[in-house]
Simulated scan of single mutants.
Amino acid sequence: MTSICVLDGHTLNPGDLDWSVLAAFGDVEVHERTPAGHILARAAGKQVLLTNKTPLDADTLAALPELKYIGVLATGTNVVDMDAARRLGIAVTNVPGYGPDAVAQNAFAHVLHHISRVWEHHQAVIRGAWSAQPDFCFTLGRLESLSGMTLGLVGFGDIARHMAAIGAAFGMKLLVTSRKKPDDLPAGAEFVPLQTLFARADVLSLHCPLTAETAMMVNRENLALMKQGALIINTARGGLVDEAALADALHQGRIRAAVDVLSSEPPSPDNPLLHAPNISITPHNAWATVKARQNLLDIALANLDAFLRGEKQNRVD
Rank of each mutant, 00 (worst) to 15 (best):
A300S: 06
N94Y: 08
D248S: 14
G76K: 06
L301G: 02
E190G: 10
N13G: 05
T150P: 00
A300H: 09
N52M: 06
P266T: 06
L308A: 04
A165I: 11
E29V: 00
S116P: 00
I4L: 14
D81N: 14
T196L: 07
K46W: 00
P269W: 09
T2F: 00
N303V: 04
S116D: 09
R87G: 08
G239P: 02
D81F: 10
A247E: 02
A91M: 12
A201E: 10
S178Q: 05
D8S: 02
A168D: 06
N278D: 14
A36L: 08
D59G: 14
V95R: 09
L174F: 08
H114I: 07
G155F: 10
E265T: 02
D135L: 15
D16M: 01
R315F: 08
S116A: 13
G152Q: 12
A230D: 12
G89T: 04
L56Y: 09
A247L: 04
D242Y: 08
D57F: 10
A109C: 10
V125A: 15
H121K: 09
R87L: 13
T289M: 08
R179Q: 09
I126E: 15
S116C: 14
P277D: 08
T196Q: 11
Y98T: 05
N303D: 14
G45H: 05
G229S: 09
S131Q: 15
R127A: 15
Q228M: 04
E311Y: 01
K227D: 07
F191N: 05
A91K: 07
E66K: 11
I232W: 07
A91C: 15
G310K: 02
W287R: 00
E190R: 15
R86T: 03
T60N: 00
Q252V: 00
H207E: 00
A132W: 02
G97F: 02
T139C: 14
A224G: 15
N234H: 05
A189M: 05
N314M: 08
V30G: 10
N222M: 08
T139I: 06
G188T: 03
F138C: 01
E29N: 08
T235N: 00
A107G: 12
T235H: 09
R293W: 03
H31W: 11
H113S: 13
R315L: 14
A212Y: 04
I70Y: 00
P134F: 01
A247P: 13
G71V: 01
C208G: 02
K173W: 04
V111A: 11
G141D: 11
H284Q: 04
M1V: 11
T2M: 13
T214H: 10
L225T: 13
R33Q: 14
V176G: 01
V118W: 11
S116I: 06
D135T: 15
G152V: 01
N219S: 06
Q47W: 06
C137L: 13
F108P: 04
N94F: 09
L197N: 10
L194M: 13
C5L: 00
G238N: 02
